[in-house]
Structure formats: C-alpha cells, structure tokens
Amino acid sequence: TFVALYDYESRTETDLSFKKGERLQIVNNTEGDWWLAHSLTTGQTGYIPSNYVAP
C-alpha cells in the first residue's frame, strides 16, 4: 500500500480524490505518471498522480 503525501482533488471523472495520509492500494502502475489506485479509506477506485504518494 501507498500513503498520500498531499490532498488531491479529482479533475476528471476517472481521477480519484484523496486526502493526505490516506492509504491507497495500487491496482496498475504501468500508465506512466498516473496510476490506477483503490482507496482503502473510501473504497473508490480511480487514477492518481504517482508523485502524490509514497510507499
């Protein structure tokens, strides 16, 4: 799992909003700078900017 370093507000319907400190499970990280992730807090799935999270 990864932890959010910053808050992120989604800009498209495929993005995932999250708050700093939220735990995220990475589903697919082969898309370059945008990873498909599942929030362990909200249960939602969407794309996140990879530079906003850390292991």
Score class of each variant (00 low, 15 high):
T1M: 14
T1H: 13
T1N: 11
F2Y: 15
F2S: 03
F2M: 11
F2Q: 04
F2R: 04
V3L: 08
V3H: 06
V3S: 04
V3E: 10
A4I: 03
Y6M: 12
Y6W: 12
D7T: 06
D7N: 07
D7P: 05
Y8M: 03
Y8D: 00
Y8A: 01
E9S: 09
S10K: 12
S10F: 03
S10D: 03
S10C: 08
R11M: 13
R11D: 12
R11H: 13
R11K: 14
R11E: 13
T12N: 14
T12K: 13
T12D: 11
T12S: 14
E13A: 12
E13G: 12
T14N: 14
D15W: 06
D15M: 07
D15H: 14
D15G: 14
L16M: 14
L16Y: 05
S17V: 05
S17Q: 07
S17C: 08
F18E: 00
F18K: 00
K19H: 09
K19V: 10
K19P: 01
G21F: 04
G21N: 06
G21T: 02
G21E: 03
E22W: 03
E22A: 04
R23S: 10
R23M: 15
R23K: 14
L24F: 15
L24S: 00
Q25M: 14
Q25Y: 14
I26L: 07
I26G: 02
I26F: 04
V27M: 14
V27C: 13
N28C: 12
N28W: 09
N28T: 10
N29L: 13
T30Y: 10
T30W: 10
E31R: 13
E31N: 15
G32Y: 07
G32T: 13
G32W: 09
G32M: 11
D33A: 12
D33Q: 11
D33M: 11
D33S: 11
W35G: 01
W35Y: 06
L36V: 08
A37H: 00
H38T: 15
H38P: 00
H38G: 04
H38Y: 15
S39I: 04
S39P: 00
L40T: 07
L40H: 07
T41E: 13
T41A: 13
T42H: 02
G43K: 07
G43D: 06
Q44W: 07
Q44P: 00
T45Y: 10
T45I: 12
T45F: 10
G46R: 01
G46N: 01
G46Q: 00
G46V: 00
G46M: 01
Y47N: 05
Y47H: 05
Y47W: 15
I48R: 00
I48K: 00
I48P: 00
P49Y: 05
P49L: 06
S50K: 14
S50P: 12
S50I: 06
N51V: 08
N51G: 12
V53Y: 04
V53N: 02
A54E: 15
A54N: 07
